[in-house]
Design a binder for these strands. Structure first.
Lengths: 239, 239
DNA sequence: CGGTCCCTTCGGTGGGCGCCGAAGACTCGC
DNA sequence: GCGAGTCTTCGGCGCCCACCGAAGGGACCG
């Protein structure tokens, strides 16, 4: 009646994620980095040919972008909007009943719970702790919705050294709530969340663990976050 | 590796919407009202038996709730979170290329573009106009994200007569941006958006057209919105 | 209590698609 | 330029599932 063709479009989009393997690809890519086709195939435990077909479908569907480099096919989420879409979907899932097996898996999942990148911003305990501290200091308003306050904008530019112009490049909101699937708590996303993460990496206040999406606080980062937000990095187990 | 079982959950959720008929059901139910199984079957042009199976799947999947009343099976979206999920998905679709055929279809789609309910709040030109006016008057902050200001909270309770206690019942945000698929603009959702819509209906400032989701401004509503927000209802074609 | 209406259950059918292995295109390093 | 490595294309297999019609179960009405 009102939406004759629209439902097909919605079904087409949902169908892209309605497969276990493709869903696994997208969740892996949610760390914001570029993966090769082979890495994803190994990750999801399917044959390279299968992975290739899935990646073609996902890029044709607009969820991924690809970049050919030598003999590798690198894929990445197509943008912040796709990351948001995946977040909204995962936020509606049941809490993860996963039981990591073995020491390596346990320590890997502990590292991810401590801190990690979620597309272009910070998640895990680190992301939640920073978000809470910012809220407590009046830099973030979580009462009326989710927005950066004037004080918050000033803090980002003056104390953290974020370029004001990079805070609102397009239609993307400055501050957005992103729901974490390990913490089940919201943390800061949007351009402010992305710039915050950038600066912390640039200053070497946080560091990636190996080549994974997990991050940890450095000693100088702990000092800085204590000065800036009153966060005790050791007590919160962020190091 | 990190999300072994999680991808299956995501795929399972997406699969619920990965069918043209089920997607049509959900989009229809996005108006927030309860539909009978037969109405939905006719709407999506499938046999009653087919509709019944789809509705069972959607309720089992947690997207819908049902209520048996006499020989009718009424279904409804399971809650605001499901409505949000559908909004995020539709926001990622291509703009609707639908071409309404015939006079009735054209006038119906014009009525929906003028104003309608989107789950429990207002959308269409009416929703966008109110949101813009509130933003212009400092009741809503769209710079730092999307949040109700202190002035906005006071305006809702003192001028509009919203019960303060009903503004933040649970974990649902007071203000949330909802992207409209006809206007491609954001409008106010969340508890504030829901209470606003409630009050406008209670005061008979807006009225449903027939039994559809379309709404229009009444003459006394035009006067009230002019006083409260400086909106010219006739000029904006909201009546 | 029989007729009507709404919905559900159950077979059966057809199409779509996720998977793999084999073979081929392409890049890189020696 | 020759192997090794990465990815893609293709054919084939098997499974899942959306659909319908027919039959059955309740609810309402006369």
């Amino acid at each position: 009646m009102t939406t004759p063709a629209y439902s097909s479009e919605l079904a087409r989009l949902a169908a892209l994620l309605a497969d276990r393997t493709r869903a696994a690809f997208c969740l892996a890519l949610l760390d914001g980095r570029a993966w090769t086709a082979g890495e994803l195939a190994a990750y999801a435990q399917v044959a390279p040919s299968t992975a290739s077909e899935h990646l073609t479908r996902l890029t044709d569907g607009g969820l991924l972008v690809e970049r050919h480099q030598g003999r590798h096919r690198y894929v990445q989420l197509a943008g912040p909007r796709v990351a948001e879409l995946l977040e909204s979907l995962t936020a509606h899932l049941d809490p993860p009943a996963e039981r990591p097996r073995g020491l390596r898996a346990v320590s890997a999942s502990a590292a991810l719970a401590r801190g990690r990148t979620c597309y272009d911003h910070l998640a895990g305990r680190l992301g939640v702790t920073i978000t809470d501290a910012m809220t407590g200091r009046g830099l973030l308003d979580q009462d009326g919705g989710f927005a950066l306050t004037d004080a918050g904008r000033a803090w980002l530019t003056d104390r953290l050294g974020v370029e004001p112009a990079t805070l609102s490049p397009g239609r993307r909101p400055q501050a957005r709530a992103c729901l974490d699937w390990t913490e089940r708590r919201t943390h800061l996303a949007g351009t402010a969340g992305a710039r915050l993460c950038d600066r912390l990496l640039e200053q070497h206040w946080i560091r990636r663990i190996g080549s994974s999406r997990a991050v940890r606080l450095t000693p100088q980062g702990a000092t800085a976050l204590h000065d800036l937000l009153g966060i005790d990095g050791a007590a919160a187990d962020l190091m």
